[in-house]
């Protein structure tokens, strides 16, 4: 499983959870993202290792050696998305109701096109 396909799944999941008002699902969603971000036990990596064995080596860290900040951009993405959802869905649900939808749309588009502006921006900032 690549990060691209996982972003697609995240986007679709979030949109479905939002449409059907499955607040519990969204809390679980936030929890998974926080877990991935804090531990770096990312679902794409786990799924790939289950499929390909321990030989799997995530090649998304192409500029790992020259990264200024030794922290994975994908982890930062998950933490940021979780944080945004906490703020916009849990704390200020009515005021910024649109933001979770926006996150869902962007994740979906990132999965469809393999172009994730946030990850690109994070890597430009120096994350691994």
């Amino acid at each position: 499983m690549t990060e691209r396909s996982f972003r697609f799944i995240l986007g679709i999941s979030l949109l479905i959870l939002l449409y059907f008002h499955l607040d519990i699902g969204i809390y679980i969603y936030i929890g998974i993202l926080l877990f991935e971000g804090l531990t770096n036990w990312r679902i794409p990596i786990i799924a790939s290792r289950m499929r390909y064995g321990s030989a799997y080596n995530p090649q998304d860290l192409s500029n790992a050696d020259c990264a200024a900040i030794p922290f994975d951009a994908e982890r930062v993405l998950r933490l940021l998305v979780a944080g945004f959802l906490v703020v916009t869905f849990v704390l200020f649900k009515e005021e910024v109701w649109f933001f979770p939808w926006f996150i869902g749309f962007m994740l979906f588009m990132a999965g469809m096109t393999n172009i994730c502006p946030m990850v690109m921006g994070l890597r430009w900032l120096g994350f691994r």
Partner: peptide, 9 residues
């Protein structure tokens, strides 16, 4: 290996 190189994005 499963690649998802950001430059390829």
């Amino acid at each position: 290996t499963v690649t998802d190189n950001w430059t390829r994005n």
